[in-house]
Design a protein around this nucleic acid. Structure first.
Length: 570
RNA sequence: UGCCUCGUGGUGUAAUGGUAGCACCGCAGAUUCUGAUUCUGCUUGUUGGGGUUCGAGUCCCUGCGAGGCAACCA
């Protein structure tokens, strides 16, 4: 990615201007703030690319901050996997790798500061404790069309508020009994200004801090504080937070009044929030809740199921970090809610793998071919990657009996089928020209064995008389081929938008054929592949040795993506 | 019917008052020992109406459409 390739989208122009205006104190600082309550998916990957990408573009830094302000749903397992996935995507926060991790933050590490700020707000008469119940709360808040009305506690004096707030902290009250609210404007057209809740009581242990707190800050209060205290200059998030922005600015203003904004290069750093459209992908769902449902109901085999849009799922599928980054670059950044096509992601994957994946031959649905006039064993030499000479070549044994794919044979060829059929000639990739004589069938009419002869003058693949053979098919030597399992993946959902009938009915759109398991043979070399290693199986697709289930004695390959196929029977 | 945001080919995005461009998808052809790759060509677009301007996708007004906001979630 160089500068001219990068789109000059509105966020970039925004930051450019702030840098020019000297607002950043010499360093652009962004942040990626996931909540550790699930695995990150391709949608988060776009945010990671934007957050880390913009920082890198301006020579600044991007913090990884776990926004762990709601202990009810968060866990260390999620936290660790988020870090792993971001590293895998190819991004680094300051100090990652040398154990310092100065660019890594937990929101929960700022709880002391947040509490102090909350007390300050109370003392300044800008926040108060409120004990409205759920129902009353709703009634007092009003609706978007109707202004709210003040809580009876709105004008309690700071002294008493401070006392109650400390009692909240000390565990004197039950969940929901009291909360701390900002004192702003109950009649604002923006509901987030109607005295929003700043702190709520939650008698729940925090995965990171244990029992230290029983009150926890709300996102709208915590986020601007985190940004400000970390010296973040540009805080980018998704569109639904646009309405929260005035509140974000309100908190930053209060921090400014309290003299709590950090200074850098003689400049007071005022964090600013801007919003861009989240990534949506066709034929999948992106909501953490729905993905969790797929996992817990066993509709897929875990968060890292290769059909999942999670980063760990895509990794297991064989997608590359580079392809994912390229995809995020290509879909662009804007404020238009849109749905990108999965085809573009697949194109990015093929684009990279075509250049880098070693070529191999694998037969997924084997049928035996006997070359009646072939004797002994010969060796075929083929390039590991015809696009990259430095990848060198490999040698593959070839003998009288081989496996080919069932789909490469037709007893009665249709028009424009130029693979194997009785009476026709086909090239066996890298080996020779073969003329099929007949097929042996079982009682049910299934082809069980194909016979024919080779042209002894054609070793290497070219006819001695220069005659053209249009079709070339792949094969695996039966004597030395290695048995292998293949997992063929397709879209998890048949509908472009699985949520079109509402999220409660999205399961109805699941693709029953999203996973198809096959058993066949691969060329001998593949028995020693490393888990996670990616290949192109010629004429078939890109595959990866499964990172969990592959072993030399029982090779398992996941299909990453098929090769483009322009074969259309006439 | 409150407030906020957004409408450019099938999809995603560019054009920042001056020739509507790029990519993916699709289609057609060339090359090819992968029906892949590569190469060439093609189809398809500014939400309607009014206004400002020499000139509007861009600015203004208005209609239409889409989305967001009424968790003590993030």
């Amino acid at each position: 990615m160089n500068e001219s390739d990068t789109s000059r989208h509105f966020l970039r122009q925004w930051i450019e201007k702030d840098v020019a205006d000297g607002k950043t104190g010499g360093k652009v600082v962004t942040r990626f703030p996931p909540e550790p309550n699930g695995y990150i998916h391709i949608g988060h990957a776009k945010a990671v690319c934007v957050d880390f990408g913009m920082a890198a573009l301006f020579g600044g830094e991007c913090h990884l901050r776990l926004d762990d302000t709601n202990p009810a749903k968060e866990s260390d397992e999620y936290a660790e996997n988020i870090k792993k996935d971001i590293r895998w995507l190819g991004f680094q926060w300051s100090g990652d790798g040398d154990g310092v991790e100065s660019g890594f933050y937990n929101a929960s590490n700022m709880f002391d500061k947040m509490y102090e700020i909350a007390e300050n707000l109370i003392k300044r008469g800008q926040a108060y404790c409120c004990n409205l119940g759920q129902e009353e709360w709703k009634e007092y808040r009003g609706t978007p069309e109707k202004p709210g009305k003040p809580s009876p506690s709105r004008d309690t004096d700071p002294e008493r508020n401070l006392k109650i707030f400390r009692e909240m902290r000390d565990g004197k009250y039950a969940d929901g009994e009291w909360c701390l609210r900002a004192k702003i404007d109950m009649s604002s057209p923006n509901i987030h200004f109607r005295d929003p809740v700043l702190y709520r009581i939650r008698h729940v242990a925090h995965y990171h801090l244990g029992e230290k707190w029983c009150i926890y800050p709300m996102y709208d209060f915590a986020h601007p504080i985190e940004d400000a205290l970390e010296g973040v200059t540009h805080s980018m998030c998704t569109l639904e937070f646009e309405v929260h922005r005035p509140l974000y600015d309100w908190v930053v203003d209060r921090l400014d009044e309290m003299g709590m904004l950090v200074e850098r290069g003689g400049v007071k750093i005022r964090p600013q929030q801007r919003e861009f459209a989240r990534l949506n992908l066709t034929h999948t769902v992106m909501s953490k809740r729905l993905l969790l449902q797929l996992v817990t109901e066993g509709r897929v085999n875990g968060w890292d199921d290769p059909r999942m849009p999670t980063v760990c799922g895509m990794r297991r599928r064989g997608y590359t970090p580079g392809a994912i980054r390229e995809f995020c670059e290509r879909v662009g950044v804007s404020k238009v809610e849109s749905e990108s096509e999965g085809a573009l992601l697949e194109w990015c994957v093929r684009e990279e793998l075509n250049k880098t994946a070693l070529r191999r031959m694998a037969v997924l649905d084997p049928v035996k071919v006997v070359i009646d006039n072939f004797e002994g064993v010969r060796e075929v030499e083929l390039p590991n990657n015809p696009l990259d000479e430095s990848a060198l070549t490999r040698k593959i044994p070839f003998s009288r009996e081989i496996w080919i794919d069932r789909s490469d044979f037709m007893e009665v060829p249709e028009k424009k089928f130029f693979r194997m059929f009785p009476g026709g000639e086909v090239r066996l990739r890298g080996a020779c020209i073969f003329k099929c004589s007949h097929a042996v069938k079982d009682d049910a009419g299934n082809v069980v064995e194909i016979h024919g002869t080779w042209d002894p003058g054609s070793w290497g693949g070219n006819a001695p008389d220069g005659r053209k053979v249009k079709g070339t098919i792949h094969w695996v030597d039966a004597a030395t081929g290695v048995k292998a399992k293949f997992r063929l993946y397709e879209q998890l959902f048949t509908a472009k938008d699985p949520l079109k009938d509402g999220s409660e009915r999205f399961l109805e759109h699941m693709n029953p054929d999203s996973l198809c398991e096959k058993e066949g043979f691969v060329e001998p070399l593949l028995g020693t592949a490393a888990p996670g290693e990616r290949f192109q199986f010629e004429r078939t697709g890109y595959f990866v040795a499964d990172e969990k289930d592959f072993s030399p004695s029982s090779p398992v390959f996941n299909r990453t993506v098929t090769l483009k196929d322009s074969y259309k029977p006439a």
